[in-house]
Nucleic acid binder design. Sequence first.
DNA 1: AAGGTGTGTTAAGCAGTGTTAAGCCGTAGC
DNA 2: GCTACGGCTTAACACTGCTTAACACACCTT
Lengths: 226, 226
Amino acid sequence: MSASIKILLAEDEPALGQIVKESLETRDFEVILCTDGEMAWKQYLQHKPALLVLDVMMPKKDGFALARDIREQDKRTPILFLTAKSQTSDVVNGFHLGGNDYLKKPFSMEELIVRMHALLDRASQREDLETIRIGQYSFNYPKQRLTFKGDDQYLTHKETELLYHLAEQRNQVLDRSLILKKLWGDDDFFNARSMDVFITRLRKKLKQDPSVEILNVRGIGYKLIC
Amino acid sequence: MSASIKILLAEDEPALGQIVKESLETRDFEVILCTDGEMAWKQYLQHKPALLVLDVMMPKKDGFALARDIREQDKRTPILFLTAKSQTSDVVNGFHLGGNDYLKKPFSMEELIVRMHALLDRASQREDLETIRIGQYSFNYPKQRLTFKGDDQYLTHKETELLYHLAEQRNQVLDRSLILKKLWGDDDFFNARSMDVFITRLRKKLKQDPSVEILNVRGIGYKLIC
DNA sequence: AAGGTGTGTTAAGCAGTGTTAAGCCGTAGC
DNA sequence: GCTACGGCTTAACACTGCTTAACACACCTT
């Protein structure tokens, strides 16, 4: 049995929740059913599901509030809202972007499945898009991994962030002070020394491909060549 | 799976924008859709796309104004304008040069794709052109390297910039004061002395090929012979 | 609670870059 | 041929950046 995809379903109406859960399980999803927003939050933290299906109207914490909390720490996992007809669609529209979708009640199981698959596909596509080519390396930003011909290195968080910013401005000068403010919060002497160290470490990790270089532009910043 | 090419699409008509976006996405482009000029500007700064497709008529900032702003800091990224039939062609023609093109509405997706590829190909060719021949040397501007028969020298940032400007005006006189203002910010006594030093250093690095010379034109500037 | 591992910071000395200084050289104008 | 000026060259200097190692702290495991 292949590892099935984990779904978090939050629906306060017990009958509906149970039907959807069972129906999804016959289609090989693993479903965690929650009956209110707070429970959903706890279960989300514990299970990190691949997709969330959230009723908007729920006790303790509604679907939007929950989504906001989740988005604070997780910009990627897609969320599908279930809304009653009466819910004003402009609120929903605010969320109908960036890995979110919604479905009006009542809905058929077929509709739900189609939308779920659409979201899951998009999310898996994004995986590829999140992989950045740097010369012969491929750099997976969210996974903090740098791969060179199958040879995988793990980057720390700060290394990742720094490399990401360098890669965003590849072949252009990235301002030193800007990066210090963004990653260290302040451009002072000690943070600058710390950044020196990180540049050295990145250079070391990038030297498998000699066509990739981090050049210094004195007094201004760095330039990632690739 | 190669990282797909990032495109910024600015189109205020939502239906058209969405169709084009989706259509391009099926062709393996990554599309950032913006609905007005200001949003496009912000997204441009953040994503640095490989190509911009801009509707000329847009809220907040029209396509031409946006292009002007972008060209101030970025002379390379190609821009494709989408124009209504009514738009006067002389304005368009002003931009129909230097990495720009335009397409009249209504257009077919095929036309758009063809033009986009034409622009992207031209841009990638230019990448190669970043290696400049100077006599027997090859000078890679972004990599700050000067190669003579496999013998590689590293140039500092200022050396690189100076040589680049000399090479741009090869066999013509490059104005002393102009360079001082451009690279040193001001034409004063001390900066002029500093520039003398850099000219000396460049001459030293260029003397492997005796047919390459930096000649002085007394009181006016320098001329790179090659 | 103790020990281990990993991450980011601090420290110290060295290397590279661009600026300043000083004296010399070559050419134009007299 | 002399002078004045602009340009050339070398060396020394200040400052920025580079590198290595040691360190402190948080987190994990037992």
